[in-house]
Write a protein that binds this DNA or RNA. Sequence first.
DNA 1: GTCGCTGCAAAGTCTTTGCAGAGAG
DNA 2: CTCTCTGCAAAGACTTTGCAGCGAC
Lengths: 153, 153
Amino acid sequence: MNHRTLDYDKLLVDFKQLLKNNGLKFTIQREVILEMLYNCNEHLTPEALHHRIQEKHPELKTGIATVYRTLTLLEESEMVTSLSFGAQGKKYELGAKDHHDHIICTQCGSITEFVDEQIEQQQHKITQALGFLMKEHSMQIYGICHSCQKITP
Amino acid sequence: MNHRTLDYDKLLVDFKQLLKNNGLKFTIQREVILEMLYNCNEHLTPEALHHRIQEKHPELKTGIATVYRTLTLLEESEMVTSLSFGAQGKKYELGAKDHHDHIICTQCGSITEFVDEQIEQQQHKITQALGFLMKEHSMQIYGICHSCQKITP
DNA sequence: GTCGCTGCAAAGTCTTTGCAGAGAG
DNA sequence: CTCTCTGCAAAGACTTTGCAGCGAC
């Protein structure tokens, strides 16, 4: 269900534009991080991302600090968004995808995405009633996914 | 809007029962932490909570470690819930209150609570359709609150 | 009295920062 | 060439843990 409205080339162009606009440089490390976020159909912790990059591009010896710096940059530029839940730390995903909310299995940690138009509309109603200027929102539902229910009923 | 359905005495009884059931002891520090969570109509970080306790009960010299330990205990027992958003860390609130979601002002950091029956129902529908066993959920809406809009329009 | 609890300080995590050399523009 | 990036290691922030004495039951 990912990347329906997004192809990598477009993403890369946007990224390069973003860098240029801010007098920043396009480096291999930054590209690799973006690419990895694009290709991993998952929500990744900085550490997991770093690990995968080292596996796939060991020649770069990418440092964890660079991963953190790039994620911060991408998040500030709203190209990725972060999710933090419980003690499990912060996870990142590409944010240019369609907006969606998350259903998280507390057993296996898997994350399912969904969008519900009715909920979105309701949120607008509520904030308007309070005179609140809504910028964004995040919703997480926690529970046990279908597969894990079978294992431990 | 808080504590509509909850008075402190009841809370305290529940807490004592919880401790007894687990062979744990009722200490002044634990009571003070619970009381502070009850009286502060806010979502508190462990550090903020610790600071307020030291202000109000300096004679106890309550250590930050005890605050962390007690919050962990309370969270595991589902008497408090934690909220984590962005880089701002984890905040705790009494969880025995009515269920509610959060509207967070990114300007002043204030948190407004709300409940919407329609959203709740919709969440159940969605998870049921996925064969997911919903345990709990959290929803945060970010934006600029009414007061802050006046200051910087 | 017993056994859990507490404060303190030390040890862990996770994340950020300073720096000198490498590399993009 | 200039000025930003990077990796490394050191420093920070936040949280947890070990321990010896204290206190609830």
